[in-house]
Simulated scan of single mutants.
Amino acid sequence: MEPSEQQQAVRAVAQRFVEIAPAGWARLVGNWEATRVDGRVNLNYVTLGVVDLQDRWGAGQFDFDERLYDLVVELHEAMAADGDRWTVLDLEVDADGAFRTSFGYGQPKRSLGIEDEESMGRFQDYLATWVAEHGERPQR
């Protein structure tokens, strides 16, 4: 997969993430672990949003979105065609349009039942980390 094609595919994932985001979101966070079973990609995912609730910040898990799931699978398969079969994709999207991605190639921990800081803890504590960095109340 050419770098420009990869960027386009990642942008499609980010755009769909934005389309399904709750009103007032400040940051969207996604983590997808990919495993192959019987030749098919299965995703174990955490998708959450940090939301401006006017008087405080809130955070919560997104519901399943089939189109987002399919776009992540398509990205995985397209990158795998070049031999780069990632096992973990992290994506953060900010309300100003900035986004960051990282790909991991090790064992997908959550999918193996390992719930440590990397696989789950950072998401369980995401709101507390956000508040520590941005203050208890959204700036007006």
Rank of each mutant, 00 (worst) to 15 (best):
R85Q: 13
E33D: 07
R110T: 02
S4F: 03
D94H: 14
Q7V: 06
G60M: 07
M1N: 03
M79L: 14
V72C: 03
Q8G: 03
Q139N: 12
R140W: 14
T47I: 09
Y105Q: 07
A59D: 11
L75T: 04
Q107V: 15
I114P: 00
Q15N: 09
V29S: 13
H76A: 07
V37P: 10
G24A: 11
S119D: 11
L48F: 09
G58M: 03
E115N: 13
L75E: 09
V46F: 09
F17L: 12
V50K: 01
H134F: 06
I20Y: 10
V131C: 08
G113Q: 04
R85A: 15
W57F: 05
A9R: 11
L53R: 15
R67L: 10
V29M: 13
Q54P: 04
W57S: 05
L112M: 10
H76W: 09
G113I: 01
V51D: 06
N31D: 08
D52W: 06
H134A: 02
Q139M: 08
R56H: 15
A9H: 01
E133W: 05
V73A: 01
T129N: 08
H76Q: 12
D90E: 14
D125W: 03
T87V: 02
M79N: 13
R110V: 00
D70T: 05
A95E: 14
Q61L: 13
V37G: 07
A59T: 07
R16K: 05
L127H: 07
D116T: 08
F62K: 13
N44F: 08
D116M: 04
R100P: 00
P108C: 01
V18L: 00
V41D: 04
N31T: 09
R40F: 08
D96V: 00
G58V: 01
V29K: 12
A132S: 15
Q6K: 05
P22D: 08
D96Y: 00
V72Q: 06
R36N: 12
G106V: 01
A98D: 15
G104Q: 00
V50W: 02
G106D: 15
A128D: 14
T101F: 13
F64A: 06
L53Y: 08
A59R: 09
E74A: 10
T129V: 03
A80I: 06
V46A: 11
E74K: 03
I20G: 04
M79E: 15
M79G: 06
Q7W: 00
Q15Y: 02
R137M: 10
